[in-house]
Design a binder for these strands. Sequence first.
DNA 1: GCGACAG
DNA 2: ATCTTGTCGC
Length: 282
Amino acid sequence: MAGEAEAPPPEETLSFWKREQARLKTLVVVGDTEAWQRDAAFSGLRRVGGVDVSFVKGDSVRACASLVVLSYPELEVVYEDCCMVSLTAPYVSGFLAFREVPFLVDAVRRLREKEPRLVPQVLLVDGNGVLHHRGFGVACHLGVLTDLPCVGVAKKLLQVDGLENDAQHREKIRLLQAGGDSFPLVGGSGTVLGMALKSHDHSSKPLYVSVGHKISLEAAVRLTQGCCRFRIPEPVRQADIRSRDYIRRTLGAPGPPAPAQERSQKAQGPKVCPKGGSKESK
DNA sequence: GCGACAG
DNA sequence: ATCTTGTCGC
């Protein structure tokens, strides 16, 4: 009952996926469509969503899809939805959406049904937007399917269209000073595909922000920065934390480890001192 | 054989 | 994505 190895998709499936991306790509809106996006203080923005999919340890099929909504600018979680799912499509670079997006769309649908008032005004997505092989990453895909503004936030540079994580690139990263500093990622065609953003004063690795849907790159970067208490923007970070926590609580420690009358010790005393130190990586 | 490889 | 605790620094 636990998928092991992932079989590479048939060539036929890949070509279908490419056609699907090309079709949906025509529906992407690059640019600000909401009033708050053009406001210097994001006045009017009250809810920012984050999504993520975490996996069960030795399993390539079982996973937890999560959607969280945070208040802005407080960045406090006001909604959480974690759902165990069985992934069908394998992971193939350039086609991440076909593996994860169906479950994220489901989560958005549940939110719209249960708590319409908490539907986020924008979603931060783990992965890329237009910074993609065919200009249609998971953030664009989710944006088009939900019609919600989306921002792609990747932790690693997707080396596409001439973009390279070479010595020159690493040097530009090294030159970033304070949190908020950034530099454009220019593709071979001269197009700005995204921005490398130093999201935290003491983080050596930048975030790679790109437009997903219904937002400009400028607003996307500014919003991402505005959501960062640590390197990873809070909405995505909370979605990640809560989805893996859900997995642990659901099927984390099976059988043996229950020493008789031991009570689970959750949130304890006052500590939780996140080391906002010097080496925030991964 | 070598390098790439979002999550 | 996942494998993983403590340790160093402010």
